[in-house]
Each structure stands twice: as structure tokens, then as C-alpha cells.
Write a protein that binds this DNA or RNA. Structure first.
Lengths: 258, 258
DNA sequence: TTCCCAATCCAACATTTGTCAGTAAGTATC
DNA sequence: GATACTTACTGACAAATGTTGGATTGGGAA
């Protein structure tokens, strides 16, 4: 999908125009897109870091990320650990519809805009719109695939390579929803947040950032990540985007999505 | 669920008696259980380590693990990495029904017995049996929750603690399906396999095993893991089984499962 | 038995990463 | 302007982990 297509989507469906685009590029009918718009009961914009969902609590609504970044986190005895992140267009916590209590937290970083979707509206979709229900299921399967990839990268990569992998994935996922640009992307990520996401100390992340900078792989400053040579970044971070189930070898099967 | 209940289940439903018991303890009707039996077209027993599913390939059937252990793995440039494991009763690769190609491999260790389920039979269940379809979805959500927990543990724990966590989780999941005993459990896991699962070198896993042994936490020998003090093991491995969505605080909501 | 192979175990040294204790620069607030 | 706060950064040392090159053990195969 080209970025001007996404711009058109956003004009027609300002809240859900990016919905699932970074995840599943199945055709949705205009009716389905219109239906998605009606799912959002309310939009909220948060400018400060906020824990919007807390492990163990019960919620009656799910969250669609319209703009900004959020982190999935789990609390350890002494600190917070980042499990994954979400970019605009992601249905962040669809599983909390099915699971009585959430098994992790959702924390915002930077400024985010959220769309709140009451669970009874999701139940309606699950019952009456099997195609959308299937897309919802796919979205959660994709989360699992991304988790698996990150488990392997944690086992395999040094801190510097982990960060390169995060940058490569963020960039790619932002591009999928019409964000990002040729030279990099804007992000509210800080070195401390990268430490939480990569399982390293903030001090070591700082060392790793210096390594990335000195070797010309990536540079983060002023809320932006600049990347001169994409191939160099993706190679260093061992980034193979199969697991994002984009257009390539692992793309989703269309035949059972109708 | 008590182990004598599970024995009765196994007598009535020899292939699927453990099905989903380690994952979701929702009531299934006798009709549903009988239906599950009919899903299995064929059972296969493998005695040697075998890659039964390979990343990137297309399959027309999914796999139910009836007996033994399998690993989800991803290949790195030089070695194999273990992402997660499965115990009897798990529907191993339900997602490969929905995703055109698998994003990872499934490898056996030890002797395993598999039930093969053609995808058209799963499609039939998805269409005609919404309650079972919901259970299938839950099962894949649970996989994602387990992945998230393991990501955090990889970020948080030393190798010795990671292994303690693996032992605690294996033990708990085996108990959920009527396997394991008061003093530990039988397993085909080796130190090399634990190295793949924990992201450490085999040499370091050996050191960690010595540490666990010397401190009286766990001992593995002769295809068995012996644990003298469960609380000690679970404490050392920071094992908090919320994420397994068993009987405790994070248990699944029953109201939307009918 | 004898051989072979997988699994376990070990010591020494190199590399990665964490911890501690700071400094420096930028930004928001008063 | 002064202050506090967040973020980025640094050096020194300690702990965890990887790598290399072995030795040992036990069970199955010939």
C-alpha cells in the first residue's frame, strides 16, 4: 500500500484509516471500514506517560492506537520490562476482550491518541461479522509471531544488535501505516525505554548507541532516529521481516479470509 | 482438575483426553469431546528428533501433541534457537491453519505421539461450532501470553534462574494434564536443549545446572528432573504462573465462552 | 566385550554486560 | 534568572556469559 493510498484512507476514515494496515493488508469492504469507525466510542489524547491498562485488572473496553507509541510492559521486582511496542493502527489489547484479566500492562510514551472500543461492540462483530472476526484473530496471531521473533533475537543478539533490530522493525511497521520517511522516523523512544525493551541497563544501551553512531548505522537525537544505510542497519540487526507477514514469503493466505 | 479425572478422560477419549486441559479448563460437552476425536485423521509416533514443521512451508494439516515434548524453534545463522515448548494436550500449530506459512519450526525431542488434523476439519469447526472455535482462539492467545512472560524472563533473569523457571513451568503444565508427580517429572530435555531454550551456551547451562544442584533447587539426570522443594524452585526462578491462566487471578472469563 | 556416540562436566581466558558514581546538556517551571 | 528534572553520556570495576579445548561417563551397537 502506498502512502497516498493511506492518506486517502485517513481522509475517509480518520480514526480507523490505519487500522490493521500494519498487520493485515486484506481488503476490507467500505461497509467494514465504516463499521470499524462506529466501534470507537470515544477518543482520548494523553500527553504524559500513562499506564492505560494494568495487569490483573478487568476492563470492559479495548484500545485502538490511533496515533503515537505504546509499550506492553511487565513489572519485575525492581523495574519495568518492555515486552513489545505498538505503532499507530494497531489494535493494542484485543485479547483483553477474551481473557478475563490482562496478563501485562500497557504504558504510553510520548503523546498518544487512543480509540476506545467497548467490548460489547467487539462481541457484536465477533458474532455478526465473521470476516472482521477473522481479521481480529489474525491480528492476535501476528502479535504471537512478533513475540516469537523477539524471543529469538533476545537469545541471539548483543545489545547493539537488538537496538538495531528494534529500529529496523519500528521503521518498517511505521512505513506500513504511511509513517516514517526515507531517512528514518520520529519516535518518543528514549535510551531508557530502549533499555526496557532490549533487556539491558540504560548505561549499556548508551554504550550500544555510541557503537551504532560510530559505525554509521543509526543515530537517535531530538526525538528522531536517522538511518543513512538501511541495508547496513537491517544486516547488523539481523532483521528479516518475514514474521511481520507483509508482502513476502510468509504473507497471509487470502483464501480462508473471505 | 484432578489426575483421576484426567485418567477417566483418557479412557473415554484416548487421543484428545488431554486436549486443551493444560490451557483452558472450560467445560466441553461430551459432543464436543467426541467431535475432537473425529478431527484426528491419523496418529504418528516418532522416536528420533525430527523437524515435523518447517518455517516458510505450507501445510494442510495441524498437529495435536498427544504424548511427548516438542520445541518451537527458529534457525539463526549458526545455530537453532528455542522459542517455546509444548506438553501433551497442546494444539501445537493451530495458527498454521490461519497463517499461510509457518513463521517457525516445530522440532521433536525424545519420543512423541502426534495427532494430525486436516485443515478442512478445523475450518468446519470454525464455521459450525463457535464455542470450540472460541476455545481454539483462546489457545493461541495463551501462546502469546506465554511468549510475553518468557520475553520478560529473558530480560530479567540469569541463566540459572531461567532454567529454574523452565523447570517450574514444565512441571506445572505437566500437572495440568495429569503428568508429573510430587517429586518432579520425566522429560527428554537435555542440557543442550535447555541451552537453546534459555539462550545460553551449553557450557554455561552446565555451570547453571551445577549451581541448581549445589543449592538443592533441582537436579536433572536420567531423563528426569527431581525437585525437593517446590517453593524454593519457584522462588528462585521468579515463577508466577498467572500467565498460564489457570485457576488463579488471571483465569479466563467464562461468560463469553458459552 | 569393545567401540562409539551423545551427554555431561571442567578449567582458563576473552567478551559482554551490570553497577556505581558521577558530569553535562537541554527543558520546563517558578 | 534560578531551579529542578529528564536525558544523554563517561570511567572504573565487578559479575555474568561465551569460547576454546579438552576429560569423563554411560548406554547402545557391533
Amino acid at each position: 500500500m502506498q502512502s497516498d493510498d493511506i492518506a486517502a484512507e485517513l481522509a475517509a476514515y480518520p480514526q480507523t484509516g490505519r487500522f490493521l494496515m500494519g498487520r493485515l493488508r486484506h481488503d476490507m469492504s467500505a461497509d467494514e471500514k465504516a463499521l470499524l469507525e462506529t466501534l470507537i466510542e470515544e477518543t482520548v489524547t494523553l500527553t504524559r506517560p500513562t499506564r492505560i491498562l494494568e495487569k490483573g485488572k478487568v476492563y470492559t473496553q479495548s484500545t485502538m492506537l490511533i496515533d503515537g507509541f505504546v509499550l506492553r510492559t511487565l513489572d519485575g521486582p525492581l523495574q519495568r520490562y518492555g515486552v513489545s511496542f505498538h505503532v499507530p493502527g494497531d489494535f493494542v489489547d484485543l485479547h483483553c476482550f477474551a481473557l478475563r484479566r490482562l496478563d501485562h500492562n500497557i504504558d504510553t510514551i510520548g503523546t498518544v491518541t487512543l480509540g476506545l472500543v467497548p467490548h460489547d461492540r467487539i462481541a457484536f462483530v465477533m458474532k455478526e461479522h465473521p470476516h472482521l472476526a477473522r481479521l481480529f484473530w489474525f491480528s492476535t496471531l501476528l502479535d504471537a509471531a512478533m513475540h516469537r521473533e523477539w524471543v529469538m533475537k533476545l537469545e541471539q543478539l548483543t545489545t547493539a544488535r537488538r537496538i538495531a533490530h528494534i529500529f529496523a522493525e519500528v521503521w518498517r511497521r511505521l512505513e506500513m501505516v504511511g509513517l516514517g520517511d526515507a531517512g528514518g522516523f520520529a519516535t518518543p523512544l528514549t535510551q531508557a525505554a530502549l533499555a526496557e525493551l532490549s533487556g539491558a541497563s540504560a548505561v549499556h544501551v548508551n554504550r550500544a548507541m555510541g557503537e551504532l553512531r560510530d559505525s554509521g548505522i543509526a543515530e537517535m537525537r531530538g526525538g528522531r532516529v536517522d538511518i543513512a544505510d538501511r541495508a547496513l542497519l537491517e544486516d547488523f540487526g539481523r532483521f528479516e521481516p518475514d514474521y511481520l507477514y507483509g508482502e513476502g514469503a510468509l504473507s497471509l493466505r487470502r483464501d480462508i479470509c473471505t
